[in-house]
Computed example of a mutant assay.
Amino acid sequence: MATTKVRGRMSAAKVRVLAELGPRYAVDLDPGRPLGERLGEAFGRSADRMLDVGIGNGEATVAWAAAHPDRDVLAVELHRPSAAATLLAVEEAGLTNVRLAEADVRSLLAEAAPGDVHDVRILFPDPWPKRRHHHRRLVDPVLVATVAGVLPPGGTLHVATDWEGYAAQVVAAVEADGRFAIDPTAERPDRPVTTYEALGRAAGRTIHDVCATRR
């Protein structure tokens, strides 16, 4: 797990958490070996893998992993305080099917082979609401195409946002790719209300869940 650069202000307690729990839950990020091989080694078994991107305090990640003990959850996060909070939540929940990669998800997916990941979830990515900043948004046609190339048929991409324009952008990218089917009648996936979701609701914004299935 990377330790050379602190991404986010860290309390002494969170520094200790990363030092103590990080090695136990870390994924080898050395691109010298296939990603699928490294993930199999990290989890110690072969199972369908779910990628959780931008994990906040880890509450939603823990719930996802607990609801799917037959699957493995790879949490991807660059914000180190969030990584520390998630590791502590995973440890307290006693889960064995969660691992953490302190990495840019775009770089990680670029290394993945088809089938390395079966589901991708991105909850409330930074909306970059100002028009001049829209190009910084994580979920764009390039990311959608990369995810489509990794997921097997039946795999899912789920993006949640409280910004209507961002949701429309995600839908447009998914539909333009052509390898996904979106069910507009699908119910909101079961998950805890995250901190960012609560902030969006408090501000009067509508929550949009874009759920697409790989054809």
Rank of each mutant, 00 (worst) to 15 (best):
A145R: 10
A181M: 03
A203F: 06
L29E: 01
V170P: 04
E175R: 05
R121H: 15
G58D: 03
L143S: 03
L29W: 01
D119W: 07
T3F: 10
G204R: 07
P34W: 13
R38S: 13
A67T: 07
N97A: 12
R16E: 15
I207M: 10
P125N: 10
G149H: 02
A89L: 03
G22M: 11
A83W: 02
G8R: 04
A203N: 08
R188W: 01
A203S: 14
F124Q: 00
S82T: 05
A186G: 13
V62K: 05
V142S: 14
R9K: 09
D30Y: 01
T194F: 05
P153G: 15
P31S: 11
G115Y: 06
A172F: 03
H68Y: 07
R99C: 11
L21H: 08
P184A: 12
P34A: 12
R136K: 12
D209S: 04
T156E: 15
R191F: 07
R215T: 11
G44I: 06
T96A: 15
P152G: 14
E37R: 13
V17R: 05
A26L: 05
P114A: 09
R49L: 07
H134M: 06
I122G: 00
A176I: 02
A60Q: 14
V150K: 03
R38I: 10
P114V: 14
G155N: 04
L78F: 00
R179G: 13
R33D: 12
R49I: 05
E20Y: 08
R215M: 09
A66K: 15
A89P: 02
I55Q: 08
T195R: 14
G154Q: 11
D28M: 07
L29N: 03
A60H: 15
